[in-house]
Design a binder for these strands. Structure first.
Length: 345
DNA sequence: AAGTGACTCAACCGCAAAAGG
DNA sequence: GCCTTTTGCGGTTGAGTCACT
């Protein structure tokens, strides 16, 4: 049996605060300041527990709280800070004057997280979602290596972080394969490299995974993030083999440690002095599908993963201790420029 | 207008760390 | 050093609101 909630012990009130209660709390704190939250409610004449009073004050009544929608700059900062600090909402809040940890946490969970997911970015690791990369990989291997045997079981076994994109991708690829099998394939711009080359100026991708998937589909050996797995060192291959071998339990077996290991294993093996080359998958001449300067729909790995921070000043105030104490789980691939990629709706 | 599902966000819960005796 | 109390934090819940049918 769990602990009895503090408010229930003494029959104290719970739930939404009334304006009268708010006023009592404000009046008391203005006169006496806040110190001992335990005794404060009694002294202030409130039938609340101290914890409830503290929360109400810090999250809502404090005079320095900035209400209203988050600005683009704030959103940027939150994403950058989250990539460095993780779910340390209070630490993030300390870099955003006037915003509370609760507010930031809510905003992250209801807005930013969804945005990142829809862009094919894992909001936990701030890296491209491996579930989508993986599905693209097995789809393409089915299509090109053994096109008559489509590995649908592999699809079913995947437990994606969020599978909307995955389903779209899978259905598109399945459709494509069905066409091919029946020789019914139309000259589909999306999957025809020749036509694409002719029309590349208007081809845009909603997210990097679509681009990766397409690239892999039309030219399996072009995209280093998937196809060039064969170029990996034996250790890296071993990791990936483990990954594929675990097909049955699939991505649910990937721990947070394992995923960055895979990513960094590949990324850093190809690291050169040119970060751009590292993070932005080089596209072949025939599959240069976009340029980064013309559309918000376009996406660059580099812009997400490796760009030096465009950094609001608050970020510069993160101490070395903070960085250390919050660990390195996501700290290496975490500074990115946001404005372009956030404006994708 | 009523029903339903999705979304938002204030508030709660429980744990852990810090502070005090 | 140990125990108790207080405070801070992150995860979660659920009432209220909105959008859609």
């Amino acid at each position: 049996m769990g602990r009895v909630p503090c408010c229930e012990k003494n029959g104290l009130k719970k739930g939404p605060w009334t304006p009268e209660e708010d006023q009592k709390l404000i009046d008391y704190i203005q006169k006496h300041g806040y110190g001992n939250w335990r005794t404060l409610p009694k002294n202030a004449g409130l039938q609340r527990c101290g914890k409830s009073c503290r929360l109400r004050w810090t999250n809502y009544l404090r005079p320095d709280i900035k209400r209203g929608r988050f600005t683009l700059e704030e959103e940027e900062s939150i994403i950058q800070l989250h990539s460095i600090l993780g779910n340390k909402w209070s630490a993030i809040a300390s870099h955003l004057p006037g915003r509370t940890d609760n507010e930031i946490k809510n905003y992250w969970n209801t807005h930013i997280r969804k945005k990142l997911l829809s862009m094919g970015i894992d909001p936990v690791t701030h890296s491209p979602r491996l579930d989508l990369l993986y599905i693209s990989s097995i789809l393409s291997s089915s299509l090109y290596a053994n096109s008559s045997q489509f590995n649908t079981q592999g699809l079913l076994d995947i437990h994606p972080i969020e599978n909307t994109d995955l389903l779209k991708l899978a259905s598109s690829l399945l459709f494509s394969q069905q066409c091919e099998d029946q020789n019914l394939c139309p000259q589909n711009d999306l999957y025809n490299p020749q036509i694409l080359n002719q029309n590349q100026s208007h081809v845009h991708y909603q997210n990097p995974v679509q681009q990766v998937a397409y690239t892999e589909l039309v030219e399996p050996n072009v995209n280093p993030y998937i196809s060039n797995f064969s170029d990996l060192s034996s250790q890296q291959n071993s990791l990936l083999n483990d990954w594929h071998r675990n097909n049955g339990t699939s991505l649910s077996t990937l721990t947070e440690d394992y995923i960055p290991q895979l990513l960094s294993s590949y990324n850093y093996s190809n690291y050169s002095s040119d970060n751009q080359n590292l993070m932005d998958p080089p596209m072949s001449e025939t599959t240069t599908l976009h340029s980064n300067n013309n559309s918000n729909n376009n996406f660059s790995f580099a812009s997400v993963l490796s760009t030096p921070s465009s950094s609001p000043t608050q970020l510069n105030s993160i101490t070395e201790d903070e960085r250390k104490s919050y660990g390195s789980s996501s700290s290496n691939m975490l500074k990115f420029e946001i404005p372009e990629i956030l404006d994708f709706e």
